[in-house]
Simulated assay, not measured.
Amino acid sequence: MFRRLLYGTVYTVAGILHFTNEEGFRKIVPKMLPYRKLIVQVSGVVEVLFGLSLLVRQPGPATKRLLKLFLIAVFPANVYMAVNNIEFKGRQLPWWALWGRLPLQWLLVKEMDKL
C-alpha cells in the first residue's frame, strides 16, 4: 500500500508540474514533434489521472498496463533531454543524472507490476 500511495503522490505532483512549469516540460519534448504544448498538457492530465487513481484504489491489470505504456511513451523525452543536455528548472543537471534517469525509468516500468 505504501508503494501505491508513494507513486500516486509522485504521479499527481508530476502531472500538476506539467501545468505550473509547462515551458520547462516543453523543452524536453523533441522539437520535431508538433503541438509540443498540447503534448505536455495531455501528458500532465494523464499523470494526474493515474496519480489520483493510485491514491484512491489498488490498480487492476489494465491500469498497470496503461501505466507501463505511458512510461514507455514518455521515455523518448527523457532520452532527448539527456542527448541534448537540457537544463531542468533553470539548472544544468550533471550528465550522470540525465543519463542515469534512463535505466531508472525502465525499473519504474517493472515496479508497476508490484502495485
Rank of each mutant, 00 (worst) to 15 (best):
78 N>H: 09
48 V>I: 14
87 E>L: 04
59 P>R: 09
97 A>P: 00
10 V>C: 07
95 W>E: 14
52 L>F: 01
30 P>R: 08
29 V>N: 10
44 G>M: 06
10 V>W: 05
45 V>L: 11
12 T>C: 08
92 Q>W: 02
101 R>G: 05
8 G>I: 08
100 G>F: 00
74 V>C: 09
16 I>Y: 02
11 Y>K: 06
20 T>N: 10
39 I>P: 08
35 Y>C: 15
84 N>S: 02
79 V>S: 04
27 K>E: 13
78 N>T: 04
7 Y>G: 09
11 Y>H: 10
14 A>V: 12
100 G>M: 04
16 I>S: 06
4 R>L: 05
79 V>C: 13
73 A>M: 14
88 F>K: 13
96 W>D: 11
69 L>F: 05
104 L>E: 03
5 L>P: 03
60 G>S: 02
33 L>P: 02
52 L>C: 13
41 Q>M: 07
103 P>E: 07
36 R>H: 08
66 L>C: 13
105 Q>F: 02
13 V>T: 07
13 V>S: 10
43 S>G: 08
17 L>T: 13
54 L>T: 03
7 Y>A: 10
14 A>G: 13
31 K>H: 11
85 N>V: 00
98 L>N: 11
93 L>T: 06
62 A>C: 02
32 M>D: 13
20 T>E: 14
61 P>F: 05
44 G>P: 00
16 I>V: 14
67 L>M: 15
98 L>T: 01
79 V>F: 04
69 L>K: 05
39 I>E: 05
5 L>Y: 11
63 T>I: 15
86 I>Q: 04
36 R>K: 15
67 L>Q: 15
78 N>I: 01
50 F>R: 10
17 L>A: 15
56 V>N: 09
49 L>K: 06
39 I>L: 15
21 N>M: 11
84 N>Q: 06
47 E>H: 03
53 S>I: 03
77 A>G: 04
7 Y>T: 07
45 V>P: 02
87 E>Y: 01
52 L>N: 02
60 G>H: 05
96 W>I: 09
9 T>L: 14
108 L>V: 09
5 L>D: 09
77 A>K: 12
80 Y>A: 07
90 G>C: 11
103 P>N: 10
78 N>P: 01
51 G>P: 02
16 I>L: 13
